[in-house]
Design a binder for these strands. Structure first.
Lengths: 195, 195
DNA sequence: CTTTCTTGATTGACGAGTCAATAAAGAACA
DNA sequence: TGTTCTTTATTGACTCGTCAATCAAGAAAG
């Protein structure tokens, strides 16, 4: 039943199914058939709308990054001063949705993918630069010349906390990570001001 | 040529070949045949000495973790006081050998594996606990009651820096990561002492 | 002559990507 | 209005390849 304009719907369904499937398997070892079935279509159609498996993965990665970016931007509009903006970035990074099993699985696998796949690497670089630049922008007025190092450290801490917390399945993951990162901000600011 | 006692040699060769192969492909998507060929034997022999593919991966992971643990212990014997011990842990975590492409690939893929594989998860937990306990032991006399939070933060920072730096192929990766982590130690100690 | 080591060949399964064919919605048109 | 053409959507069947695991059998020590 070719209702025209199926393409965007199909693509979105495939992207969502891909993320779900990666979450379910924990790896990129998911078949196009399974993705397509979950999205309610034949594998041939998945190949029709995307060039191949790799393109599907990249679309899923792009989607995940986009969602995260939107969350950060959303949190930022609520922040009044640099200090609040830093907090906003941290909180956006540790929302419970970010710690959903599938989200964690996607991030981990994107890191793996980024090693060898040019496009995946570029996407990850973009994410990193954006995070770094956001932090830098708000740290500059707070810690001045120390900003680059502090930003790098904060960015790494966010990634590291995500990694450490994301692999456990405790509850209260998000709260703990947030508290630690906010503590870091406090420590860094205090130190920078005094020196 | 059945010289007796081939087993340990074969197993070691397979483990090394596995790591090399993971490094070359960037993923766990490596065939037993390729591993076996690189190790100079038939794939059947690999299956003979290990139960199956999964066991080979676990052995490789165990090996990687063991090497890292040995490096840390080696660095620790040179350290006189808690502060130096902290530095030793950081430096051991960021040796250039740890930033070799294959090592990074292994770690990333072990994280992925740890999501769904019980044994891999346990191994990673052991690594984490050891790191945390090492840090805690040396932080307690330095920052007292703040030690747990500082340890968690330092551990996460190490993981995060590794992740951020390991995926680039700049030179001077190790030096940069080390400097940032040492800066963190300094900041944390200064803050904790003053409060 | 038995145990340890070793492999080539085989099996059985699965998966990515292709293709030819079908179906339906609209466009052009008489 | 009905007819024909074109474009988009969709699938089942098929190809070609790969791979993990098994097995039966060979070679070399002890």
């Amino acid at each position: 039943m070719p209702k025209l304009g199926a393409e965007p719907i199909r693509r979105e369904a495939l992207v969502k199914a891909t993320i779900a499937e990666i979450g379910a398997s924990g790896s990129l070892d998911v078949t196009v058939s399974r993705i397509a079935r979950r999205a309610g279509m034949s594998s041939a159609l998945a190949h029709h709308y995307f060039g191949g498996k790799e393109d599907i993965f990249l679309a899923a990665m792009r989607h995940t990054l986009t969602v995260y970016g939107a969350e950060v931007r959303g949190a930022l509009v609520m922040a009044a001063d640099p200090r609040e903006r830093l907090e906003a970035i941290v909180r956006a990074s540790f929302t419970t949705s970010n710690f959903r099993k599938e989200t964690v699985a996607c991030w981990l696998n994107f890191y793996v993918l980024a090693q060898k796949n040019e496009s995946a690497g570029r996407l990850l670089t973009i994410y990193r630069r954006r995070l770094r630049s956001n932090l830098l922008h708000d740290l500059r007025p707070l810690v001045g010349v120390a900003a680059p190092a502090v930003a790098e450290r904060l960015a790494a801490l966010i990634d590291g906390l995500y990694l450490r917390v994301g692999l456990r399945d405790d509850a209260d993951l998000a709260a703990e990570a947030t508290a630690l990162a906010l503590g870091q901000i406090e420590t860094e600011l205090k130190t920078a001001v005094e020196s």
